[in-house]
Design a protein around this nucleic acid. Structure first.
Lengths: 211, 211, 211, 211
DNA sequence: TATGAATGAGTTTTCATTCAT
DNA sequence: GATGAATGAAAACTCATTCAT
């Protein structure tokens, strides 16, 4: 069996094990057995537990980002030409669909990687930044399209993106746990929650504690 | 030294260690040393690592909920009389202030407890449900105050609450990590993001993919 | 509460715990709790786990020996005047009755003390020797009463006594475990098994492999 | 070194350690060192202290039973044709010889296994039952060969077998501890003690307390 | 007389990792 | 390319024992 294929088998097993047990509780023994190979082979191909986990994070992050990107920019099509809200909608739908289809991968990214300190948190922070940048771009684009509000700075946008990504993550978890909640529904909930608010913001509606 | 005091010392040390290292990576040896006692004493007072972690979760959850509640319902005052948005604002400000002041406790609740399976996830889910119910109540109250939209069901509200809590959690993390972001600012960002959107929703503004 | 009484309480608790859990598995914590006193008091009165166990062995051994002796030599009565078989019968009945009434004490003597090496094995060996000597005496008396067989030496008698005591111990265990077997029945079984054989031996019936 | 051989080394070391120290007092560290391997290897091959002890019991029990059986039923030979007393004699001789040659194994079976509760006691009870059944068979056979006494029921036979096995165990201990006592002598002592008595019983000689 | 508070030393068990083949 | 054999290091947990009061 070619090396590349064996490696994918191992990563599959690792993602499943890490996702379900957690980084520390997952043992290399279990992963090797699930992958159907001997432990030394895992080390030969992937060096160490840390490297293996990192490889899992990278693969899953890339897959998730690709799924979102692919939905927003359909190859050769009018993707970029779509209005910002439709692009956001497409991205969110893809996001929720992907996380629902790959729960172990999502658990690795969302729960395990962020929980186990530095080598890993950075890895997933990068992906998160990528998604946040994408959202930021859309919001910025929309803001530009509307009559730009000069009091609306970069940090505001950044905070809003954080909020949106956090809301999306929370809803992904909720959708995975609550039976009968589809990716479609989750995306719609979030669009309703976020887009009308954002649109209002851009129209100058601002909430302030003093009034 | 009396038992109750020693126990608090141990919990302090445990929260710090669990928050920084994670549940599995934290060793009882380290916790005991940080608390300035011997390991057997930790076991004598708190039984097991699992029980110790549970005790941490409970204490931190109770403290966080108390902080939020205390801000929303100032003793003897006009608390309940305040409009919903002011109540939400007060609660969020307290939430962000508390998480900023107790980063390890927040890490225990937000990252560690949810990552390590059943005895613990349930514990924190209870707290989350409590906060979500509080938010749901406010949204519902506001919706009732506005002209009720009959197409706006329980599940919608539940989804919105999930989104809001997730956004808050994400912003708490962001505020903790980004220097110079105050609790005030995080709360304002979230109010802007959420409240204008919610208000719009209740006025019948709905986003839909088909248009 | 006077010291002597407290000590008996502790020994009661210790015998029960040692008998049921074994010497190593029994913890001083458990014994102290069962006795209703604090651990330091146990140490104050009985010094150490080893001393406590030794005290248990001594007390139980003395009680067992006293029960047997008391049955064989009824105070002031015709005890010594009884024929050897009646004396043996009386002793065995008392032995089985006592072990049935004090299963934990018997477990301490028969199972635990012999299993845990030198300080203790010697203690119980002494008691066993005392009982064996008693039996040996009876057999010897009977042999003398019969026409002495000069080929019947001390070692033979000693071996027979060992066999008899072993048989008694085994039957005690059997009687304790098998419902419905009374001390009476166990004693009768052993008398049948042993006495007819011994009587035959003394009449010169000898078994030999060559014929 | 192949696994099977290493396992035997470990069992050898374990039997010796358990036999001399007792189950609880024996530490896995000591066993591993005596076996000349590292502790993890002991766990890899034998799972746990409990499993290791069980494996010891099984191996020693099987060896003892095989030794006795092998002596009573010499392959292809007139074994079954021998009279009951000769068969018993052969079995006892083999029993005493085996226990004398494997004192640690015998200690494991006779002292340790019975003292440490349920997973183990059952294991050794099975072996004991096997030996008792063997003895019971011989006695029954002999009884049938003689003029059957109808008042001689199953429970009587069972009690006699218990007594005989107990006597044998006690003599084995005695022979192991007393210098100069051979297996031959121990077997002869027991045959004298038991067989003449049993023979007498079958001839209707019965001992009764009332006369 | 009696105890709440405290610990040093040791237990079983697990795991990431590496040779020799 | 692949594995059976093996281990150093560390984890959670327990226990007999002692002070200070």
């Amino acid at each position: 069996m070619p090396r590349a294929e064996r490696e994918q088998q191992m990563l599959d097993a690792a993602v499943q094990t890490f996702g379900q047990r957690g980084y520390r509780a997952a043992s290399m023994d279990e992963i090797a057995e699930l992958a159907g190979v001997s432990k030394p082979l895992v080390y030969l191909y992937l060096n160490s537990k840390e490297d293996l986990f990192t490889a899992c994070i990278r693969r899953e992050a890339a897959a998730l980002v690709a799924a979102v990107r692919g939905a927003v920019e359909p190859e050769g099509a009018a993707g970029p030409g779509m209005p910002a809200d439709r692009q956001l909608w497409a991205g969110l739908t893809a996001f929720f669909a992907h996380t629902a289809e790959h729960p172990d991968g999502w658990a690795v990214l969302h729960q395990q990687a962020r929980t186990h300190g530095e080598p890993f948190a950075a890895e997933v922070a990068e992906m998160r930044a990528e998604l946040a940048a994408f959202v930021t771009g859309l919001i910025g684009e929309a803001a530009r399209a509307a009559h730009q509000d000069p009091a609306f700075g970069d940090r505001d946008v950044s905070g809003l993106a954080q909020a949106l990504v956090g809301a999306a993550e929370s809803l992904a978890q909720w959708a995975n746990e609550t039976p009968g909640v589809s990716a479609h529904e989750a995306a719609a909930t979030l669009m309703n929650f976020a887009w009308t608010g954002l649109a209002g913001l851009m129209d100058g509606h601002r909430w302030s504690p003093t009034r």
